[in-house]
């Protein structure tokens, strides 16, 4: 019975380590990449401006801040030093590149995500309550961890497919980073909330969705926040009206 338990322990630890190694690998790989061109942002600065653009996809400020905070929490729980905010952005860019190349990579089921979180907690030797507490201290919810783990699982699968096609992921990423148009806005990489171990005031992570009230075709007005109170909204900007 004891050896049975030990075997599970090894399995869990391996899973947790694999995730950490993936995180570190994505970070280390990007350190060897060529420096990114930087451009001035269009003015004025929007409420949730992109910190980077990868091909047609933007990485909003709020997503980057959440990733930085989450990297901090996960590193602390794992007992390793946290990546710098710039390294976290490089990882996000790599993830976007990988997922853009393999869009068919499967989204994991909630059970798979929970399974991986349980493996991580076992590897870190902490309970779920302790993880939730550590997240709360950084102003994060468990939902942020779930989203990140789901995305990492999807990235892992996409990377496996790239490897299966015969190109090592590092080599592939280096090539893609030269090929794809990547812009970063370093001057926007600020405003990181200061995380104290026991905050007395809740830390704001993501800025609120920019709200607006505009006239609608056919008459009347629409206020975004009122619409969002009823459920998700898919906001579609049309370039031309016709």
């Amino acid at each position: 019975m004891a050896s049975h338990r030990a075997r599970w322990g090894v399995l869990f630890a391996t899973g947790g380590l694999a995730l950490l190694i993936l995180l570190l690998m994505l970070t280390l790989l990007s350190q060897e990449a060529t420096p990114l061109p930087t451009v001035s942002p269009p003015s004025p600065t929007p409420a949730d401006p992109p910190v980077a653009q990868v091909g047609g996809e933007v990485i909003p400020w709020s997503a980057w801040v959440e990733a930085v905070l989450l990297d901090g929490v996960m590193s602390r729980l794992a007992g390793v030093s946290a990546p710098s905010p710039e390294e976290t952005l490089d990882r996000l860019i790599n993830e976007v590149l990988v997922l853009q190349a393999v869009p068919e990579a499967r989204t994991p089921t909630p059970e798979e995500v929970e399974g991986r979180i349980a493996e991580l907690e076992a590897a870190w030797g902490v309970s779920d309550e302790q993880v939730v507490q550590a997240l709360a201290e950084a102003g994060l919810t468990r939902g942020a961890l779930e989203r990140t783990v789901a995305r990492l699982l999807q990235v892992q699968e996409a990377q496996a497919r790239i490897e299966a096609s015969g190109t090592p992921v590092a080599e592939w990423l280096a090539r893609e980073r030269r090929r794809v148009r990547i812009l970063t806005y370093p001057e926007r990489m600020r405003g990181l909330p200061v995380v104290s171990p026991r905050p007395t005031v809740p830390v704001t992570v993501a800025p609120a969705v920019p709200d607006f009230t505009l006239e609608r075709a056919g008459g009347g007005t629409l206020t975004l926040s009122e619409q969002l109170a009823q459920g998700p909204v898919v906001l579609v900007f049309f370039q031309r009206c016709g």
Binding site: G56, A206, V209, L224, P232, V234, L235, F237
Partner: peptide, 19 residues
Amino acid sequence: LAAPAVFVLTKDGILWSYV
């Protein structure tokens, strides 16, 4: 003009965007 773009929103934040 606006670039063609899509934002998936909930009251908690921007879940996804494509510009």
